[in-house]
Design a protein around this nucleic acid. Structure first.
Lengths: 233, 233
DNA sequence: AGACATCGGTGATTGAGATCACACAGCAGT
DNA sequence: ACTGCTGTGTGATCTCAATCACCGATGTCT
């Protein structure tokens, strides 16, 4: 939770190009009202059903967004990456947060108070449009999540969908179809709505069919097409 | 598909109070670029994966929003009522529509082109804020939908949740706990992600336990609390 | 080291719901 | 009347994944 020097902070805004589509004057005004902080893994930015305080911009790191049932079970909506904005819907509509945001790995997060957000949105249509675009991206990815969850009864299909989705997200770096597996089986289960055990079993099945390989925490997908053929099944 | 006289149209905007939170000048500008039309049941405003054209404001009637799987199965996201705005996410982000919008009962719908929407959002922060609020409402209701779908394994719990949700939506008119059942069992199944037969069976079970009564197309819920006790189970 | 926690792997059992296959009611149109 | 068509009601069967129970592997504290 060490505070970063100011120089480092402003470079992060530029580095991530968060406000790339905004006029420089507006961007400066935004950076002026924003408060940047470092968070450790496990820290909670906001919790489901809390009254809204403002929006959070992920500058670096990863944040887990989830909702939870009365019986304690959890559903992970998505993992937010650098550049994403959280809590927009709640802040704009003045409602409670609909999900819980928990830090997954040490992260830099900028915060903007609800009052500042609303004031600046009224003032600068450009900024308001930007906020809406962020929200609409969250909305789209949530819709995709629903499709993946509901429109495939078999758990293997859901997992296949999840993996293919990860391939798309990841930059096609050196070796294609290779990625770090940052989630436990339990968490993967919470993403696709199944139990931990079935995730293990399906992974085992995929390995047997040579659809995936696991070396330590590295996941290799040698044959993306084969995996995709499970979808639509 | 008969066109309404202009007088009737403008009265609909006022009647529904769609732009109640906007300065009158902005509201007039919006009504100027909007195109209002009547649609019959079954008409499709836009389909999943179509390129975006603009946003639709429901002035009167009901619109079914759904996504569909490759195998033809369908999931209904929600039924939009008068006052709601559709296609915002797609229009703002320039992406494809994420869902299909089909008219459920004869409706009046206003259309605004994407270019007009974006131009007026940049121009009037107030309008941009309004758009964002509409979108955030859609987002919230979608999140609630997910919770209802995923965080309850038993199908009866899902159905109970759906019915209670309908009670909340409906105005507490003359007799409380009474509503028109505008959906078929098949459609209800598509809303909670189960088969038509299970819906029938669960309804039968609920009747047996005196949790609901059905007279023709009227659904009576004499004891809301009993129904709620099924939730959380 | 040892103790403790978290994570991954596997078998056996079980139940909820999908699916298939009918039957029947209501309602439109000819 | 007779024919379709759409929506509802019910039984029989079967499959997939939840659940329980246990074990081994790998960390990580003190």
């Amino acid at each position: 939770m060490t505070t970063q020097p100011t120089k480092n902070r402003s470079s992060l805004w530029a580095e991530e190009n968060v406000f790339r589509d905004l006029p420089p004057a507006v961007a400066r005004e935004l950076e002026a009202v924003a408060i940047t902080n470092s968070y450790p893994s496990g820290a909670v930015l906001f919790a489901e059903a809390q009254t809204t305080r403002g929006i959070f911009v992920v500058l670096r790191g990863r944040v887990k967004l989830s909702v939870c049932a009365s019986d304690g079970r959890t559903l992970i909506l998505r993992i937010a990456q650098a550049g994403e904005v959280l809590g927009v819907a709640a802040a704009v509509s003045g409602r409670e947060y609909e999900a819980t945001a928990e830090i997954q790995e040490p992260s830099e997060i900028a915060f903007m108070r609800q009052s500042d957000v609303l004031r600046l949105m009224r003032l600068h249509g450009e900024f308001a449009l930007w906020v809406t675009q962020q929200l609409s991206q969250n909305y789209s990815s949530t819709c995709r999540e629903i499709r993946n969850l509901m429109l495939s009864d078999s758990a293997s299909e859901k997992l296949a969908r999840l993996l293919v989705g990860w391939l798309d997200q990841n930059p096609e770096s050196k070796h294609p179809g290779q990625m770090k597996l940052a989630l436990t089986h339990e968490e993967i289960g919470q993403m696709i709505g199944t139990s931990r055990e079935t995730v293990t079993r399906i992974f085992a099945g995929f390995k047997k069919q040579h659809l995936i390989q696991v070396n330590g925490s590295t996941l290799v997908i040698p044959n993306r097409v084969a995996l995709e053929s499970l979808i639509t099944a």
